[in-house]
Design a protein around this nucleic acid. Structure first.
Length: 716
DNA sequence: CCGGGTCCTT
DNA sequence: AAGGACC
């Protein structure tokens, strides 16, 4: 709010000068490795996240000691409960003992947490696209450029103050003038936290520092709902305060043990340990990374987290030992997973089944998994929304994988099952004309050696070359208008759709679940589900070929009551054409591949006139409407994303098809194209030191347009 | 430990 | 394609 908005014209050369002065401060090793001389990194960490979400859903829980229960564990709890001795990851019995009045809410279904989590990330991203998620409740943000801009606008740089706490500084007014960048960062952090609070109702902590390691460490120093800056002169303090190496983010259990075996216990020990000796144990790169971490040095970039790379669903239990139970459980998990996958809109190309076996020794670890490619026709069912059918066809696959790990004729004892879709492909399948032919099959059986060059598309816009990741090149508009960005979300933003594929209206079914009793009832059979079975034939949608390939044992399983039931029910439900699907296919005609596209003013002007009646389902902020065309000065990228010379549509759009769409759909499409933010290309060359948390995203922020448009088509 | 995730090695 | 390590 304080930020005056005279923001002038952004001048490319404007911020560059700041590189000069920054050299003075940091002569240490960190600056050398990373391209950016002096970053300002924020780390956000929401307070007892699950508990906050539940308190929003049910405000009556605000004032009572609340614990979130998963299975027999209280995974987190609100601060009322904490005052009474409840801690994270405490067993329910212990928790109840400490606090008999503790109210427990089941938190095994992560749907609400996941949705809220993405809203937070989206909100942060609307200010600056360089946001990296770490789990559901943490986000890193590189606000270096934002800081530079603010500093450039400020005349008297001496009158800065810090917002919130400053680590290890006792005088209330530190000379912020010595650290204008971090001071500015602290104001940004405060604004963002306030935005998260006012728009989403969530509180949290923030840390402000020069790298991710430090930002994360310092964000936790003043716990509930506060923020802390870490100055350079206090880096040693905060590192030295760590009571064990395990406390260093990036050093887990295994690494800590190996370090201990070397006689290293404190951070100091690691700092002083000869690199060569360390390298003998861990290898060169890892050794260097570990030493750096101990020193508070971390040049890993904030890598924008795009849409998730995989979706999975799992359940743990005390004991599962019959194939029938396994089959039912997998079916149940798959059901929920397929639905989530459908909302996401992308096409999964790999399916993985994971189990955990009970064993007295080494009990809590060791999972085994088997994975296989998903036949494209099955994947298509998912994206098409043929939910039941997809599940049914995935079952044989899943059971086959299961029997690769477990001999069904021998006794077994499982304690967990997980199903996972990965290798998510973000393009909608090629459609057809007017719902006639559906030739998804263009590639089908070809050996995977040839990787279909034409479908390279993705985030690789051929000549985006120069992008040096973070520093520059980001969405200028969102940088300049931090608090009133046009992209700012209203409840459920369009960018959320792009990121996570949620539909705006509702969170929808997600049936599944309850099954609170882990131990499956061995006796009970689901009568309600069985009564309908009338046939022993395989339903038409089950591929007999595939079926034949299955081991007899599995074939039998598949014909067993629970499974057959689902076959029958689904075959009935999809007997007639599914109108939405046809419409959607038509829509997907537009996209011969899913590149990131950006509109042109010409196109915007052409279609902006049509003024669709915006009902409450309208999700596009007025400010981004295509008709504006004028003030929208998206960062001008040198390379055109269009694949054709036609400047009205993205190269992958058929103008004819486009013209057939309803006006408001056209409008939305145009709006989406405009909405596309520049892809941040991650450094391809020279990766500094393989750092913790570092990722290598090729592409981020793809949107699934066909999914977005789905609701516009009426079933008919 | 729960229920997701991510990245790295082999 | 599987398993590890970490959050």
């Amino acid at each position: 709010m304080d930020n005056s908005e005279s923001e002038v014209e952004e001048d490319e050369s404007e911020w560059k000068k700041s590189f000069v002065d920054s050299a003075a401060l940091c002569s240490a090793t960190s600056a050398a490795a990373s391209g950016s001389a002096h970053r300002v990194i924020l780390h956000f960490d929401l307070d007892c996240f699950y508990a906050q979400v539940e308190m929003i859903r049910n405000p009556a829980l605000r004032d009572v000691p609340l614990g979130i229960q998963q299975k027999y564990i209280v995974v987190t709890c609100n601060y009322v409960a904490r005052e009474r001795g409840v801690t994270k990851l405490m067993s329910v019995t212990d928790a109840k003992e400490k606090c008999p009045e503790l109210v427990l809410v089941k938190g095994e279904d992560l749907t609400h947490y996941r949705e809220m989590s993405y809203k937070v990330t989206e909100l942060l991203m609307s200010y600056c696209p360089l946001v990296e998620r770490l789990g559901f409740d943490e986000n890193f943000m590189d606000v270096t450029e934002m800081v530079e801009q603010r500093l450039a606008q400020t005349t008297d740089s001496g009158s800065f103050s810090f917002k919130g706490r400053v680590y290890n500084h006792f005088s209330a007014d530190v000379k912020a003038g010595d650290h204008p960048r971090l001071a500015s960062g602290s104001h940004i952090a405060a604004e963002l936290r306030e935005a998260i609070r006012s728009k989403l109702g969530l509180t949290g902590c923030a840390g402000i520092a020069t790298n991710k390691l430090l930002a994360k460490l310092v964000s936790g120093t003043f716990k509930p709902n506060q923020q802390t800056v870490l100055l350079r002169e206090n880096v040693n303090d905060i590192m030295g305060c760590l009571t064990s190496l395990r406390k260093i983010p990036g050093v887990g259990h295994q690494t800590a043990k190996r370090l201990e075996a070397l006689g290293l216990v404190g951070v100091k020990d690691l700092q002083l340990y000869p690199l060569n000796d360390l390298a003998r144990e861990f290898g060169g790169p890892t050794a260097q990374r570990l030493k750096n971490l101990a020193l508070g040095v971390d040049d890993s970039p904030v890598t924008p987290t795009g849409a998730p790379q995989s979706l999975s669903d799992e359940d743990s239990f005390k004991k599962m030992s019959s194939t029938k139970e396994v089959l039912e459980k997998i079916q149940q998990l798959l059901s929920s997973l397929v639905e989530r996958m459908h909302k996401d809109g992308r096409l999964p190309q790999t399916f993985r089944l994971t189990i955990r076996r009970f064993s007295a020794t080494n009990k809590w670890f060791s999972r085994e998994s088997r994975q296989r490619p998903i036949p494209s026709h099955i994947g298509q069912k998912i994206t098409s929304g043929l939910h039941e059918e997809a599940v049914v066809q995935l079952m044989p696959l899943a059971m086959k994988l299961f029997h690769k790990m477990v001999d069904g004729s021998a006794a077994f004892h499982l304690t967990l099952i997980n199903v996972c879709f990965s290798n998510l492909q973000s393009r909608g399948a090629a459609g057809s004309r007017k719902g006639t032919i559906t030739s998804f099959f263009t590639h089908s059986a070809s050996p995977r050696k040839s990787q279909i060059l034409s479908s390279q598309s993705q985030g690789d816009s051929s000549q985006n070359a120069d992008n040096r990741c973070s520093d520059h090149q980001t969405n200028r508009r969102s940088m300049i208008a931090p608090l009133k960005s046009p992209f700012t979300t209203k409840s459920s933003s369009c960018s959320e759709l792009a990121l996570h594929g949620f539909k705006c209206e509702q969170s929808s079914v997600v049936a599944v679940e309850e099954s609170q009793e882990a131990s499956c009832s061995t006796e009970g059979v689901r009568h309600d589900e069985m009564t309908n079975i009338t046939t022993h034939r395989l339903p038409p949608n089950v591929d007999p070929e595939v079926f034949k390939l299955l081991p007899e044992e599995i074939q039998k399983e598949l014909l067993s009551p629970p499974y057959l039931t689902s076959l029958c029910s689904q075959s009935a439900s999809c007997s007639v054409t599914d109108a939405p699907q046809i419409s959607k296919n038509k829509t997907s005609e537009l996209f011969t591949d899913s590149q990131n596209v950006k509109n042109t003013k010409a196109a915007a002007n052409k279609f902006g006139a049509s003024d669709g009646a915006t009902t409450e389902t309208q999700q596009w902020p007025a400010g981004t409407s295509v008709s504006q065309g004028q003030n929208v000065t998206e960062g001008d990228e040198p390379s055109s994303p269009w694949t054709s010379s036609d400047c009205e549509f993205p190269g992958n759009v058929d103008p004819e098809v486009f013209s057939e769409l309803p006006p408001d759909v056209q409008k939305q499409l145009m709006s989406e194209w405009k909405q596309q933010k520049p892809i941040l290309k991650i450094r391809s060359s020279r990766k500094p030191g393989r750092n913790w948390m570092s990722k290598d995203r090729k592409t981020a922020g793809k949107s699934s347009q066909s999914n977005n448009l789905f609701k516009y088509f009426k079933p008919s």
